[in-house]
């Protein structure tokens, strides 16, 4: 499989990374090199192999349903680049 510029542009948009034309050209080369490298996996026979679910092999630990956190809006908002009236503020979204 080989990526073309349009596909890389699409992926970059999915990942919300703005890329100009020159960057796209460079990325196409790099990504194809990496994809070419990982392509070797197709040599491995993985019939009847279950994908690894977790290295530890144990199940999910559960916590009790108790309110133990929150109630500190100031800490939540402390690092916000833009905030107003206790909210995070972002460029207006039109729905």
């Amino acid at each position: 499989m080989s990526l073309d510029k349009a596909t890389v542009a699409k992926i970059a948009h999915l990942a919300r990374i703005k890329t100009d034309d020159a960057q796209l050209d460079a990325m196409v080369g790099d990504l194809n090199t990496i994809l070419g490298f990982v392509e070797q996996l197709s040599e491995v026979n993985t019939d009847n192999v279950e994908p690894l679910a977790s290295v530890t092999g144990h199940g999910l630990p559960l916590r009790a349903d108790v309110v133990t956190d929150g109630a500190y809006p100031e800490r939540v908002l402390a690092n916000a680049p833009d905030r107003a009236h206790g909210y995070y503020a972002v460029p207006k979204v039109v729905e």
Partner: peptide, 29 residues
């Protein structure tokens, strides 16, 4: 950026099985 784009690609529709799922199987091996 390179890694985000590679990661986005290998998870994207139509490629998940060929890349990510395959890799998790090889990881099991």
């Amino acid at each position: 950026k390179r890694r985000i784009l590679i990661g986005t690609y290998v998870l994207s529709a139509g490629y998940y099985d060929a890349y990510y799922l395959k890799a998790q199987k090889v990881r099991a091996l």
